[in-house]
Each structure stands twice: as C-alpha cells, then as structure tokens.
Design a binder for these strands. Structure first.
Lengths: 219, 219
DNA sequence: CCGGGGGTCGGCCGATCGGTTGATGCGGGG
DNA sequence: CCCCGCATCAACCGATCGGCCGACCCCCGG
C-alpha cells in the first residue's frame, strides 16, 4: 500500500489535495468553490456540471478526489459517473442531499470512497476530503446507520422483469394492459406481481407503488 | 409607489443589501456565505439552519431579503417560514432545488417575492437578491414556465377529505380499511375515490398513488 | 448431471374494485 | 331564499384483482 518508503515520522507528506467538484446546481457549485478555496490545503483543479463533464475531467486532470453529487439533471447520473470515475482509480467522495437506502447502496456499489450529506459541517467535509485522498472512507452518521441496518436486513432485490412490471404498475395500468405492454400473458403478470408484493411487504398494487416511490426503486 | 421623491437621476441610492441566509444543509449554507461574501454590495447579516431560527432572526434583524430554502429538515418547513417572514414585511427570495408545481404554488401563495433554482448562475442570484430587495420578483425560467402553464390549466384541487382518502390509499389500504380508518362508510370512500380519479385524470388506485407521489400532493 | 433461480404460462375462485344512479344534510354566496 | 359545493350513505353489477395450485423452459453453477 506504500509504494514509496516514507522517511521516519512524516505523517502526511503532501497535505495538499487536488479535487474535482461536480454538482449540477451552479449556485451550489460556486458556493463549494468559494468554501473550499478557503482551505489552504485543498486545491480545486476542476469543476463539472454534468456527469459526462465529470468523467472527462477526472480522466484528464486525475484529481486526488472527485466530489460528486448524486443528483445530476439529464445525462448520466451521479451513480454512473461515480462508477466510471472510480474505475479509473480516482477516489470519489459522494456529497449529496439524499440519505435514501437505495441511493446509498447504489453509490457504494459504484465504488464511492465516502458518502457525505450536505447537511454536514464544513470541517467534516474538509476532513472527509483528506480522508478520501488517502483511501479512507467517511460516512455521515445517518448514512452509517442506514448501512448498518441494511447489512442486518437486506433490501428487497427486484429482478429486472419485476421492475418492468412495477414501472407499468406505477402508470396505473391494469394487468391486461401491463401484459400487452410487455408482450407477455396476463397470468405471467400476476405471477410477477405476487412476488413483488412479497418482496415489498405489501398486498395491493397501490401499496406497491407507494413503497416503490418511497424507496426510489423506479426512475 | 415612490414614498420619498428621489432627486433626479439617482437610480439606486443604497446598492447595499442586507440578507439572511436560511438553509438546513450546513455545507450549502457555508458555501452560500462564502459566495455571497464575494459580492461587495451584499452583506449577510445572519444565517439560519431551521425555519424557526429563520423566523426569529428575520424579526430581530429585519434584513432586506431572506434567502430561503424550501427543504428544511424537521420543524416548520420553508413554506411556513416564508409565510411568517413575509408577513412581517421582509422580502423572501426562495432558493431551492425543487421546481415542482406544488412547491412553486405553495411558496408563491406563502408570499415569496421570487423563486430561484440552485441550478441558476451566481450572477443571476446576485441580481435576484437586488431585485427582491426592491420588491421586484425574479423567477428562474423553468419556474416561470410552470407558473404560466399553471395559469392556463389550474392544478387539480383536492378537498381536505379527498386528501385524507388519498393518504390512506397511499398506504395500500383497501376501501373497507380506509372507511374504518376515517370513520365513514365504504360507500363514501368509493364516492371520494371516484372524484379523486376524475381530478387526477386516472382510473385506478395505483395510478392515483403514482400521480400523488409525483406531484407531491401528500406529506 | 442434477439443482435452482428466473421467466413464462394456465386455471380456479372468492374478494375487491370501479362505475353508476340516487338520496340526504349542511354550509356559504348570490 | 334558493342554489351549489362538499360530505355522507345506499344498492347494484360487471370487471378486475389477489392467492392458490401446478406446469414448462432456459441457463448457470456445483
């Protein structure tokens, strides 16, 4: 893990961290730039307003850490950007508003090094950036709690097909309509629905839609 | 409209604006402070992380403009804070992420002077703050569009009772259960449901829940 | 080679839903 | 004073849903 043998007792040779800021909200991004500019050991080397920009800039600038919002308007979303950027070896520190189970799980699976909420204190953000630069992970307390809870009782994992049915269901379609929309028989729709109810812990279509919207299981 | 007759050709006597920043996300708030601090004609006289704080500080500091996020964790929400602050004569400029019809309508009804999205460019924010200080309203383009659209085709206005039924429906309850929960007969539930379907333009429970969640018609 | 998970079907049946029509009471605005 | 919107309830009926049984196929991994 230590490619170059460090001389004795030099805890952090380069306390200087180069970061890339990605947030689709211009005001927020400008705010972050102004805020991070006040930290002498942090240098913002680039900023992106979309996932595509972030991926391109991360590859070009190879920052120590990419600060990534999960919510990124149109184009590829924060999760996908996180996946691609972290695949290149650049650490990704997620900084977002959402503490939903689904978002957290997907971000972690995508390779995020840390997951911070925007409600966090700025000092925590600074600390997390340095931590991420060294590969250490930082989680906001609420996020940590949810991660723990999730380990204990894993989230309902819907299959692709089940998500298809759920998507149609959320449009208020009946079984026959769903069947026609997906080119399958009505019986198959009912079979899938039954399993969806099981996994979501409900027993009605309306309940399934409510849970799906609640846990952001649909696009 | 011009209480004191201004001497000829002095467009804006005090270009200095005192503002109060309210946002529950500490990082964002710190970012805004850093950003606004870079504008010489804007002075941040206070910051709040909750609606209660914002209301209290607005009364105490009487800023020219209160910059208000709609999403404010626990306690009173941004809409209610907007209502109370603007009732005291302080201009409220909403600065938020959401451009949902429901949010926009409620904020405007609560007395917001302007409605800006966080995706806006910082210069627009500065301009909007000065505009708000003079009582002029600024709307982000997407917001303006939605407002116009809303004027043309008014949103489905559900009665209180219909919202009650819809709330139960979103929990996946059946008609009988809804009836018992609200102490009415099953026939009444069906009557209300029929009207809800009409207003939301759907014809199934699942569809109603989807639309309700989509347009944030429920808490 | 056999097991199992995912996807696809069919049939059955009771319970529920959605639509309709009609009726009552109550409150506010013209 | 009368009308209208809102909430309440009733009875009816066809369509749909939800749960249950069993069945077949394909693919992957042990």
């Amino acid at each position: 893990m230590t490619p170059a043998p460090a001389p004795a007792y030099v805890p952090a040779p380069p306390p200087h961290v180069r970061i890339l800021v990605c947030d689709d909200h211009t005001v927020v991004r400008a705010g972050l730039l102004a805020l991070l500019g006040s930290a002498p050991d942090i240098e913002v080397v680039g900023e992106a307003g979309t996932g595509e920009e972030a991926v391109a800039l991360a590859a070009k600038l190879t920052p120590d850490v990419a600060l990534m919002d999960l919510q990124l308007g149109p184009g590829i979303d924060g999760v996908e950007a996180t996946r691609r950027i972290s695949a290149t070896g650049v650490r990704v520190l997620v900084l977002t508003t959402y503490d939903t189970d689904a978002d957290i799980t997907r971000a972690i699976e995508a390779g995020a090094t840390g997951y911070l909420l925007k409600a966090e204190r700025p000092e925590e953000l600074f600390a997390a950036i340095h931590a991420a630069a060294q590969g250490r992970t930082t989680l906001s307390p609420p996020v940590a709690s949810r991660v723990m809870a999730q380990m204990r009782s894993p989230r309902p994992t819907l299959t692709d097909r089940e998500r298809d049915i759920l998507g149609q269901l959320a449009h208020g379609l009946g079984n026959r309509e769903i069947a026609r929309a997906l080119f399958i028989s009505e019986a198959t729709v009912k079979t899938h629905l039954g399993r969806i109810y099981d996994k979501l812990g409900v027993d009605t279509r309306a309940g399934a839609v409510a849970v799906a919207k609640e846990q952001r299981l649909l696009p």
